[in-house]
Design a protein around this nucleic acid. Sequence first.
DNA 1: AAATAATGTTGATATTAGTCAAAGTCGTTT
DNA 2: AAACGACTTTGACTAATATCAACATTATTT
Lengths: 197, 197
Amino acid sequence: MLTKDKKDISPLLATLNQLHPLSNEITNFLTDKISSRNFRKGAMLLKEGNVCESIYFIKRGAIRGFIKDGSRDITTWISAENEIVTSIAGLNQRAPSAENIQTVEFCETLMLSYSHLQELYQNYIEFNINGRKLLEMYYQDAENRAYVSRITGTEQKYRYFLKRYPHLVNRIPIKYIASFLGVTLETLSRTRKKFAE
Amino acid sequence: MLTKDKKDISPLLATLNQLHPLSNEITNFLTDKISSRNFRKGAMLLKEGNVCESIYFIKRGAIRGFIKDGSRDITTWISAENEIVTSIAGLNQRAPSAENIQTVEFCETLMLSYSHLQELYQNYIEFNINGRKLLEMYYQDAENRAYVSRITGTEQKYRYFLKRYPHLVNRIPIKYIASFLGVTLETLSRTRKKFAE
DNA sequence: AAATAATGTTGATATTAGTCAAAGTCGTTT
DNA sequence: AAACGACTTTGACTAATATCAACATTATTT
């Protein structure tokens, strides 16, 4: 963690309001409990084996989730501006995460602790509407990620990536994109070259 | 669809109550609106391009989701007893599904229409707690499915399948398991043989 | 600006898994 | 019981991708 900044939580409020309008009480609670956190490139927000204590909204930068598979890592997701990241294992069962969470760039985030999130869900029942809708969206995303890793042919996979994540293509090191797609970086490098031609 | 049976919705109520206790009003609403539906083996509950109009709870049997990738299918999930299945695309955005949903065995299900589900969420706000928690669980599952398709080595994949889905191993045709794991059925057949030795 | 580290490319080779085809097994129907 | 269909195994061969290693390029630090 780098600094604890003056916070502007409006982008998060906008995201949540789009799903279901937030009451003043909820807006005030969020304004009170959320803190701003910046992270240097490569910082670990969560290491496997630990229970994730927070949920982060990305104001600027990109963050990935990855799992260790022997000596190599498998990047399981990559998120950027206006997305929310956390360990689903922590959210769902307060269980130690098998997943690691790491910034890929310098990041400005908004952080809400898990316990405050639970307080929200318990004390402001209608906030569960926001949570439910958010999870519907993220679930679909997870399905899509499972899909891309199963389609055959590196070219088809990369084509999918270009279409779905155009904003990340020139920001994320090829090694992360490769493992996200389920290929080696060398193979992806060659495939990408064919595309340029 | 085969028959519309006398319904016993208690297994679904048990599942939902475990997440958050249901009020009498909600229980009555569900009892009223849910219908029992049986399907023969191989029946299509949803064909790609259509908007999914219902959500199903599996009382007996197994159901898979799959996506067409050229001429072959990719099985994206396999669910069985006491699980809920639907097209997430339909749930989330009322959009035509890219996914097909098909029974793998004779199935007894409980069906709730999408519009009644929306009624529940709107009129009984606390039901969003059940929905939110359910989605947290299913989201984690989706993450895990994405993970297994990315790990390398058919042996490792199959080992994961055995561990995570022991109840399905002897029920689901190898061709579905293979595409779920992201390998061909021949490769899976050979790998499985090595296991037996 | 030079030095260093991180990232990306390319080539040669090995390995794995895919493809195509045939035959075997199992269960269901007639 | 024979015939059919669905599922599974096996073999020979091919194609795709991984691996290992060297080098090139681009960023970052000093």
